[in-house]
Simulated assay, not measured.
Amino acid sequence: MAVVSVSMPDELIDRLDEFATNHEYTGRSEVVREGVRILITEFENDRLERRPLAGVVSVLYDYGTTSVERRLTRLRHEHEDHVASTAHSHVGDHCMELFVIEGELEDISAFVGTVRSIEDVRTVDYTLLPLDAVDRPETS
């Protein structure tokens, strides 16, 4: 098995070690391997491929982290064909940015991946809805 070096902040390493211990993993490598498998397969969902999708992407970061705010604003403009709207809120000592996004799985996957790669973003979560599965009311 190949060995891969990964740089992480000390806080994340501490959390990784604690997680491995609390969940009875054999060590960091086992946790990282499982995380990578999950991340890679996350958007490999036949049920959602080649379908029009809508979703909400939530991004949480520390209040006052202007570098994140600037990057998210640029990202909104870079993906303007897919970002339908955004909302910004304060939640405790954090900021939360919500993106309503439309597109195919590949478009949304690229957007979420880019957001996740932004330094100082604490968490990114999303929900997706296939638009062609939404029942439309009949008109009379």
Rank of each mutant, 00 (worst) to 15 (best):
R51F: 01
T66P: 02
V59C: 03
L105K: 02
E104W: 01
A54V: 08
E24N: 15
R74H: 14
I101R: 05
R122I: 08
D46M: 05
E69D: 05
L129N: 06
V134R: 05
E97Y: 04
F43C: 01
R70N: 14
E138P: 09
T123G: 14
R136K: 10
T86W: 09
L39K: 07
R136M: 13
L131Q: 06
H79W: 10
S109M: 06
V124M: 04
H90R: 10
F111C: 12
T86G: 03
T127K: 12
E69S: 11
S7L: 10
D46N: 15
R76C: 11
H79I: 09
S7E: 08
E97N: 12
E30W: 12
D107A: 07
Y63H: 11
L16S: 06
Y126Q: 07
A2P: 10
R76T: 09
E102Y: 13
P137V: 15
A54Y: 08
R15A: 02
V59N: 03
R74E: 15
E49C: 10
H77A: 12
E49G: 07
S67F: 13
H23K: 11
D120M: 08
I40A: 13
Y25N: 00
R74W: 15
L131M: 09
T139K: 14
R76V: 08
H90P: 00
G27V: 03
E11Q: 13
T73G: 13
E69T: 14
S89E: 10
G27D: 04
G103Y: 03
C95N: 04
A87R: 07
D135T: 12
V100K: 12
R50H: 10
H90W: 01
S58G: 07
E24Q: 15
R47C: 12
Y61R: 05
E24R: 14
E49F: 07
T26P: 09
A87Y: 09
H82F: 04
V68S: 01
S85P: 05
F19P: 08
V68D: 01
V115H: 01
L16V: 03
E80F: 10
G113S: 10
V121S: 02
P9Q: 06
D81N: 15
E24A: 15
I108E: 00
R122V: 02
T73D: 14
I101T: 02
D62G: 04
I118S: 02
D93E: 07
V6Q: 06
A2H: 14
G113Q: 04
V134I: 07
V134A: 07
D135S: 11
F19R: 14
S29N: 05
H88W: 07
L128Q: 06
D46Q: 09
D14E: 12
P9H: 13
D93V: 01
H79A: 11
G27M: 05
R76L: 11
